[in-house]
Simulated assay, not measured.
Amino acid sequence: MEQSFVTVYIVDAFTNELFSGNPAAVCCLENDLPENLKRKIAAEMNLSETAFVTIENGETFEKSSKFALRWFTPTHEVDLCGHATLATAAIIFHKLGNKEKAIEFNTLSGILKAIQENDSSITLDFPLNPSSPYEAQNLKDIIRVVANNFEIQDVQHCSTTQKLLLRLADKYKRKDLEDLNPLTQELLTCESSGVVKGVIVTLQGNENEGYDFYSRYFAPWVGIPEDPVCGSAHTVLAAYWEKVYNKDQFRARQCSKRGGDLNIKIIGQRVKLTGQVAHVLEGKIRIK
Results as ranks from 00 to 15, higher is better:
Pro220Lys: 03
Asn181Gly: 11
Val244His: 03
Asp79Glu: 11
Ile122Leu: 10
Tyr211Trp: 04
Ile115Thr: 11
Asn246Cys: 13
Lys63Leu: 14
Ile152Glu: 04
Asp12His: 12
Lys140Gly: 09
Glu100Ile: 11
Glu191Thr: 02
Ser159Met: 13
Ala136His: 05
Phe67Cys: 10
Lys288Thr: 13
Glu49Tyr: 03
Phe61Ile: 07
Asn57Asp: 15
Glu62Gly: 12
Lys66Leu: 14
Asn181Trp: 13
Leu168Pro: 02
Thr73Lys: 01
Ala25Glu: 00
Met1Pro: 14
Val222Lys: 05
Leu203Gln: 10
Glu17Gln: 14
Cys190Asp: 04
Ser193Asn: 14
Gly58Leu: 07
Arg258Asp: 05
Ile287Cys: 00
Ile122Gly: 06
Leu80Gly: 12
Ala90Phe: 00
Thr202Leu: 10
Thr107Asp: 03
Ile122Trp: 09
Leu108His: 15
Thr54Gly: 07
Glu186Val: 14
Ser256Gly: 00
Asn16His: 12
Glu151Phe: 09
His279Ile: 14
Glu62Lys: 15
Thr75Ile: 02
Asn263Asp: 08
Glu62Met: 12
Arg253Asn: 14
Ala43Ser: 07
Ile224Leu: 08
Leu128Arg: 03
Ala233Ile: 06
Leu37Cys: 12
Glu226Asp: 03
Phe93Thr: 10
Leu128Met: 01
Asn246Ile: 08
Ser256Asp: 05
Glu62Thr: 15
Leu281Thr: 13
Arg216Met: 08
Cys81Thr: 05
Gln137Leu: 15
Ala13Asp: 11
Gln185Ile: 10
Leu177Asp: 10
Thr85Val: 01
Asp170Leu: 12
Cys255Met: 11
Ser48Met: 04
Trp241Phe: 08
Asn16Ile: 13
Gln276Thr: 13
Leu80Ser: 01
Arg251Ala: 12
Glu35Ser: 08
Thr54Val: 04
Leu165Val: 07
Phe14Gln: 00
Glu44Gly: 01
Gly97Val: 12
Gly194Pro: 05
Ser159Cys: 13
Lys99Arg: 14
Thr50Ile: 07
Thr75Ser: 00
Leu86Phe: 04
Leu183Val: 15
Ile122Pro: 04
Gln116Arg: 06
Pro220Ile: 13
Ala87Arg: 10
Leu177Thr: 09
Ala219Gly: 05
Asn36Thr: 09
Lys257Phe: 08
Thr88Lys: 05
Ala147Ser: 13
Ser131Lys: 03
Asp119Gly: 11
Ala239Ile: 02
Met45Trp: 09
Leu139Tyr: 09
Ser20Trp: 02
Lys247Ala: 06
Leu69Ser: 10
Glu226Cys: 00
Tyr9Ser: 05
Cys230Phe: 07
Gly21Lys: 13
Asp248Thr: 15
Tyr240Phe: 13
Asp119Met: 07
Val271Phe: 04
Phe93Met: 00
Gly82Leu: 07
Phe72Lys: 02
Val6Gln: 09
Lys63Gly: 14
Asn31Thr: 11
Arg286Asn: 14
Glu44Asp: 02
Pro34Trp: 13
Val53His: 09
Leu168Gln: 01
Val145Tyr: 02
Phe72Asn: 06
Thr184Phe: 07
